[in-house]
Amino acid sequence: MSEHGTILQLKKCVLLQDMNSDELDAVFRLTESEDFAAGEEILTEGLAYQSLWIIVTGRCEVVKSGNGLEPNRLAELEEGAVFGEMSFFEKAPHSASVRALSDVSTMRLTRRRFEDLRKNCPAAADKIACNLVNILSTRLRRMDEWTCQLVEGNCSERQQGEWQEFRAKLYSGLQF
């Protein structure tokens, strides 16, 4: 893909929203292109690389190993998607693995290059940071909803049902 084509693809990326062409160009200069064959593991759960990957072409899957069980597929990522963001700010092991489903072409921004970007083009670095916060907060909100549903589904919903039924029986018909 031509440089221009790659920049156009990057522009679609959620991480690089609201950037003007100078800022996009500054980011592009600091990223490295990396290609993977279908089935290849790009990022391994438990290891820690402080980098962001943007999928330029191809598809990937996010897989989390179960406790001795079959691995769990958490998500499928398409062009324009970002991964590696959780370990990017906090140097901690990746919470899941990312594997190429097709031949994949990515752009990688390492944490060190991001620091260079902060010096050279703080506006672009700021936008990346804001977009990352958006990505993470959206995910956190979804997690909160899941947790609530899980808790309600497992106890309070069923318990309230039984409790309500018990109450209804005690308050219908007979006088105590």
Partner: peptide
């Protein structure tokens, strides 16, 4: 109260008394 429940539910005085006892404890519980 026990006789009324026995007649309404067509049960023995014992079952009626248990229904009354369990019902009152149940209501306090809920």
């Amino acid at each position: 109260r026990v006789v009324t429940i026995a007649e309404e539910k067509k049960v023995s005085l014992r079952v009626a008394a248990y229904i009354l006892g369990i019902g009152r404890v149940g209501r306090a519980t809920v």
